[in-house]
Computed example of a mutant assay.
Amino acid sequence: MTLDLNSDLGEAFAAWPMGDDEAMLQVVTSANVACGFHAGDAVTARRTVRLAARHGVAVGAHVGYRDLAGFGRRFLDVDAGTLADETLYQIGALRALAAAEGVRVTYVKPHGALYNRIVHDEVQAAAVIDGILAAGDDLAMMGLPGSRVLQLAADRGLRVLREAFADRAYRADGTLVPRSEPGAVLHDAEAIAARVVGLATTGTMTAITGESIAIDADSVCVHGDTPGAVAIARAVRTALERAGVSIAPPGAA
């Protein structure tokens, strides 16, 4: 089989660094580039896109709530019209920067609290899809398998990319354990690599409560801001390739 490896990148802001994007871009096959609302800025985004192009990495717009102070991890009650326009705004900004580097933005992945909100919230999920479609129907939508937003995206003609998480714990219902709870973020590179190989070969992962849960994934995320992120990503890629799994951007294989 073939899997995409993605990471949230371009999240540095002005003088505040975040992660090692250049090293990560030598491992992953898709880069979710921050669009300036939860993190990132114009200079960082353009540099990240340039590096992604150098390494043959696909580029996606990593859109979020307007929440730099909270890194986009706080749930905000944004009305649907505003959320649609702000989604469109973020995609448009990244597309302009990418075009200046001769790069095409191919998909959209929401960030943090917005990502988790639209797993179930019909109104905000529809607003995000409205924003994406306003930017163009050539963009794919990346999200959690079985989420409301992926269902709406497919219903409205968008290509969907189902995402699993290498370094996050799952609940028994297939949703992510909130970062505020113990054990939500995983750090052992070898254990993370083994669970991703298990996902690739069996289509399952083990929930934090011990249940085996089915996860149908096109792409696997290693968060760029997790401590040891590059080592984790390398371990995951090496383990997958040893297991006979091809690593490539969505649609490339």
Rank of each mutant, 00 (worst) to 15 (best):
T204G: 10
R73M: 02
L68F: 14
V160P: 07
H187K: 01
G198T: 08
A31P: 14
R156G: 03
A239T: 08
A61Q: 12
L76R: 09
G112L: 02
M24E: 00
V177E: 09
A191I: 07
A200R: 06
G146F: 04
G224F: 03
Y107W: 14
V49D: 11
M142A: 10
I129G: 02
A80K: 05
C35A: 08
L144V: 07
V59E: 05
A125H: 10
D41S: 09
R162T: 13
D4S: 04
T2M: 09
Q124P: 02
L68H: 10
T48A: 13
F37Q: 00
D137A: 07
G198S: 05
G228C: 15
T206W: 01
R148G: 13
P227A: 06
N116T: 08
V103W: 01
D67T: 08
A172V: 14
P145A: 01
D173C: 05
A193F: 07
S212R: 04
D20K: 12
D121F: 08
S212N: 05
Y170G: 10
S147V: 12
L83R: 04
V230N: 11
V57Y: 01
V230A: 13
R237T: 11
A207F: 15
A127R: 05
A193D: 11
M1S: 14
R162F: 10
V59S: 10
P182Y: 10
D225E: 07
